[in-house]
Design a protein around this nucleic acid. Sequence first.
DNA 1: AGTTATTTTCAAGAAAGTTTGAAGAAGGTG
DNA 2: CACCTTCTTCAAACTTTCTTGAAAATAACT
Lengths: 229, 229
Amino acid sequence: MKKKTVYVLEDEKNIQQLIKFNLENNGYDVFCFSTGKEFFLGLSRIIPSIILLDIMLPDTDGYVILSRLKSDPHYHGIPVIMITAKKEEFDKVLGLEMGSDDYITKPFSVKELLARVKVVLRRTENISIYPTGKIEYKDLVMDIDKHEFYRNNQLIKLSMKEFSLLEIFLRNPGKVYTRNQLLEQIWGFDYFGESRTVDVHIRYLRMHIGDENGRYIETIRGMGYKLAE
Amino acid sequence: MKKKTVYVLEDEKNIQQLIKFNLENNGYDVFCFSTGKEFFLGLSRIIPSIILLDIMLPDTDGYVILSRLKSDPHYHGIPVIMITAKKEEFDKVLGLEMGSDDYITKPFSVKELLARVKVVLRRTENISIYPTGKIEYKDLVMDIDKHEFYRNNQLIKLSMKEFSLLEIFLRNPGKVYTRNQLLEQIWGFDYFGESRTVDVHIRYLRMHIGDENGRYIETIRGMGYKLAE
DNA sequence: AGTTATTTTCAAGAAAGTTTGAAGAAGGTG
DNA sequence: CACCTTCTTCAAACTTTCTTGAAAATAACT
């Protein structure tokens, strides 16, 4: 399973250490930031799976960070756990209803921290952004719930990557996707690999769905691929 | 769509009112109870779609109620959201790992309450909440009332986890469930363990129902498991 | 037709995901 | 308490999928 990335925005170094050490021991990739500036810089490079956000910060207020995160379409889907020191602060979190997914009050136990992170990740992971059900196009049918694909009512087995690729195409027939767009959507923002990889998977996909000379998946030279209309 | 029924076990009248008013405004049927006794009386008449359960109760402890619910085959399928007032209570919820589906802390916002109820219901809606009767699929028969499972009219003994797993699969033949979804539904949101555990139970299940090379329970690599069609 | 840029194909090693075996923990029961 | 069942964890074996580099093929351009 791919490692989950955790961003920690917390100015107290010893708490940073504590969080980093324990989360890393439990299989997470952890990046700590002390200021909002650094934090947003990091965010523009790698999108984390979850953010732990302290309210008290030297340069910015934690609430400001949170509202900025939640109002930005790129980031508003990332679950956030607020770390608060005082009970009053905690009340404010609730009062503001700013969309944090959970909160922890200092002092917290390591077990509590791990539990919350895990729970929030599991909860948000199970909420699919995309609608489920069936997608149909010509003689191609994709059943998302059952993770099955049919051509001419015939079940065809596809690997994960092939399935994801085809799903993207089927959701937008005719729309051209560049290799980088596909990489970003399927492999994730933080994937460091060749864009040639996409080609190979396109080939497997074509092979499996019996796509003689790009009748379904069309190559747009210099651009990328699309579902032929 | 038929209205969903919500049971609320909460002794503070004003919170009862708040919950009732808001849920009813959003199309739910709501019944409030102040004591465990009343609650179980109601339960014996109508099985709700979801239960909101406060920890602090006058006559019984919320944990007792929960464990009683989860150990009763008639009720263990009903999703439960715990309502906790204090941080310590929440820790206890986590510590006990009793299999509740979500939690919410007082004071909570109405928005949050509605969101949680909706999410939990959506997650469990494919699973019939009326835990009675028989489910049949091919030569597999599951008698929920008696908690028995038959293959080819032959009684097969299954453990609790195996039974629950199979029940989920049988209620939605062909639908793929990720390990996390299974964990959430069977083990509860508060479960703090490896998702590998699911694999092992799948293995036992396969073993017991005599499932040679995944003829019944199919592995969808990179996704999870499903009942083969 | 020749040149260049881009895509496809191939094959093999790497990586990821799943199954299996086995042992220990937890829980229930007589 | 000893016994039995069920549950959880771990690591090794295994299987399938993914990635990558290089060569071959194709298309575009002069």
